[in-house]
Design a protein around this nucleic acid. Sequence first.
DNA 1: AATGAATGAGTGTTCATTCAT
DNA 2: AATGAATGAACACTCATTCAT
Lengths: 205, 205, 205, 205
Amino acid sequence: MNTRSAALVPDTGRRNEAVILNAALEAFGRKGFNGASMRDVAKLAGTSLSNLYNYFPSKSRLLAEVLRHANDELRARVRRAVADAGDDATSRMREAVRAYVGFVVDQQVAMLVSTNEVRYLEPDDRAALVAERDSTQDVFEEIVAQGVASGEFRTPYAADAARAILSGINAIASWYRPDGRLSRGQLAEQQARYALALLEARLPH
Amino acid sequence: MNTRSAALVPDTGRRNEAVILNAALEAFGRKGFNGASMRDVAKLAGTSLSNLYNYFPSKSRLLAEVLRHANDELRARVRRAVADAGDDATSRMREAVRAYVGFVVDQQVAMLVSTNEVRYLEPDDRAALVAERDSTQDVFEEIVAQGVASGEFRTPYAADAARAILSGINAIASWYRPDGRLSRGQLAEQQARYALALLEARLPH
Amino acid sequence: MNTRSAALVPDTGRRNEAVILNAALEAFGRKGFNGASMRDVAKLAGTSLSNLYNYFPSKSRLLAEVLRHANDELRARVRRAVADAGDDATSRMREAVRAYVGFVVDQQVAMLVSTNEVRYLEPDDRAALVAERDSTQDVFEEIVAQGVASGEFRTPYAADAARAILSGINAIASWYRPDGRLSRGQLAEQQARYALALLEARLPH
Amino acid sequence: MNTRSAALVPDTGRRNEAVILNAALEAFGRKGFNGASMRDVAKLAGTSLSNLYNYFPSKSRLLAEVLRHANDELRARVRRAVADAGDDATSRMREAVRAYVGFVVDQQVAMLVSTNEVRYLEPDDRAALVAERDSTQDVFEEIVAQGVASGEFRTPYAADAARAILSGINAIASWYRPDGRLSRGQLAEQQARYALALLEARLPH
DNA sequence: AATGAATGAGTGTTCATTCAT
DNA sequence: AATGAATGAACACTCATTCAT
């Protein structure tokens, strides 16, 4: 292993499936979907090229499964965080951002692959993934709506604010280095503040 | 042509060079660098496969030239806008954002290719491009520094604010549709407000 | 099932063996020996790929067994018909042709596979099958010889006549449709007349 | 070259095209369409695998071209022979059969491939080839019709006679050996007699 | 500049067959 | 018998690039 982060797909039940999925994630992360070959994946997974096809019927489906796992985990983290947060929009937004940033940092490669390679999915798989991603974004949009209704957020551009916030956080995956200036927690705190400021929240300080 | 936007590379001097560059931009935009073939580029350029190599020595260098043109244009627009703006950080930031958003909208494909395919450049070309991109980001960072010094911006996270702002704007390329809810100008205005809010500017309204 | 005809291999004794043989016949019939895969056969047989090898040691041997069953049945039908016919060459030829045509119509796919795919057998199996086929042809050649000796047939090319007759009948498998212009019986009658005419039989009418 | 017969496709104009077509004919003849690989064809043609695709876009289209050449030549020979023959159906049939047999003997492999591998063509190519083949068979059917009308042929099964005759001749390709009992000319003569006998021609002797 | 022909390495995928259970 | 996992070789086809003209 050459990343400090835990594997995206845990080894529950069918072992090789998880091994292959993690290998695919790594390969797609390193070279992109079209740049990585099934031979690369097989090598990283420690199995033969043809055996891959006993688990996934095509390279494209393999990507789809990788991305599904990543988005499932991201959405679950965000929902859990929001459920555990206070009732006001400000704290809920803060916790949602923290959770999201945490995932981006923990699963940096998955996040990168998720944003860069979705376009190479087959139409059906892409639609499914986009829907899942939208449902994660919806969580943020609902918080924005709540905060605007309650007067906590004063931005006149509420409709697009969630997307703007998430765009910035997604991009973290493309520059974050674990040994950077800010710790994982500081980064999360910073992004939460950016988000609340962007929303023109009252007294975020 | 199937896009309303003007070609990225104008037809000056060596004619076919511009044709090929624009064809490459389109091909890389549609299928990604590794997904598009030199045959695709040749077909879009209306020339033969082998003739491509009379203009560019390799696929990778072709990408490098496409990206260089895109970033040159982006940087020029931003610098011009800042030069034409007022003296205070708030108006300079607003104009810089407007110009940047304008480029993303006008050259959506170029922006997409620029963010998604840089990684496939050869090390030297990539370094050059990153440097160029950083120099554009520097313009924003200087404005942030000016605003913080003057007391216009109160964000405690000034060091990363420029990057956060640009991340959000870059992402526009991945979802913008010319027939969307907001006009080009409204979008620019919205993004400027997001930026100033994120910077916790005084009275940005 | 999507053919009206009875299965070639009856379900006696080891049940799955017959199922597999009939599946193989269907697969080879649809796609040819090299075009059909063992996976195709397994799917049609409703069993697993690897289980095929508990019954037949190789794809080639599977083909050999299919063809053996087909030729056994064909030869048996022809011999029975000749045994049941009158003593003169003319009626024996007529009944032999009728029986042969009957088999081609009843087991059209088996006949097609038998003629088209023999070449893909291993040398030993091929030799065995050719021998069996020759022994069926011998029945016809003996009748021709009898008819020439008795003066019933006046063809000057007796040596090759049996093969010429059978070639025409074999080809029926490649164009026959159950809903065609001629009924099974009419077709048999027609072919019998062609055969006797070709032999320049006296008064075949 | 390892056959005595002249190449099916003559070397006019684009040289490599003819070389590849003849190589493909040989490969398909030896191993069947699905049994022969493009590498086999390339090896026989003395070129590289990938260069094949500069001439033919797919294996299937390569087969289509091979078969088209074969059927063109066959049809041309038959038509020429009929045009040069006398006016009565008997002599026209005799010459048509002679020409057809001549082609089968001269281009034995082409004939074999033509009958055995048509099924592997893409639907459109197959339809085109079947149409071409039918048009050759039509020549025979017209002669049969003429002979029946003129009273030369007395068969009561005129409608299917042409097909029966051609089936027998086609089959020659699967057993003919140049060093066999009958010479090329004798074989043609024999088949002509079979044909006229089958048609129950008056005094074909 | 411009082309068509050529190439060797590589692509995703399927193959017949074997193995462990 | 029966299965799912595994494998190495092969498949048709495409790749970026080069060469001769």
